[in-house]
Amino acid sequence: MKTVNNITGLLALLLFFLTACEKDISSYNNDPRVYFFERNTDLTQSRVTFKSFSFLKLPTAVTKDTFLIRVKIMGDAAPYDRIVRGQAIPDSTTAQAGKHYDFIDGVIPADSITGYLPVVLYRTADITDSSVTLNLAIAPTKDFKPGVTEDDVFTLSWSDNVVKPANWDGFISLSAYFGTYSTVKYRFIIATTGIEQFPLQQSGRVPPKDGEYTAAAMSDIKAMLKDALKAYNDSHDPDLTDEFGQLVTFP
């Protein structure tokens, strides 16, 4: 009987100890946060923390554009739209608020976990020959705090600058279709075609590679530019003139 009592007591003690293994699970408190969520399309969806923008492809009449940076929330989705907004990090930011850019409210739509943080970029005269940079972070709002530190800074750079294409002059070159280079002419080409670079097919005996422009394609672009230049000159006085005081023409 003594043995039975000993075994029984031992088992009871063991059960008591086992209760100590039960994990104490605390209740979840939602703490909405948001972080930058720009990702590449590679297999690992690697992080993107920098983007650039050029006004070159836009018509000259366009003086501002809104750049959207993708963001993602931490915490539960909400059944209502929530506000997200950026703020500048003064260190290493060269753009001036109100002159080069403005923050406006973005929205995480109801029941969504991603949205966009908008930054309004201005096409100012001083970025025609330089670029400006904005380092930005998530600004606290009534709806969100900044999220994970790995994604709490984003860099944006923009300009309205042109650089003479390397293939403008030479044996097989853009000069055959566009004539003499000037920045005014090149800006007109970009504004009309929406194209910045014109890599040329190097030989008609070799099939054009992806992205290459054949002689026929360039001839059609030249014809388009001539029509566009005529339309511009018909509606402007004086005619389009380059930085050297020469009238813009195409061969």
């Binding site: 026929a216 394609a217 014809a223």
Partner: peptide, 12 residues
């Protein structure tokens, strides 16, 4: 005029 299909596009 071309023998490459990707370039066989009608201009204006």
């Amino acid at each position: 005029t071309t023998v490459y299909e990707t370039d066989a596009l009608f201009s204006a």
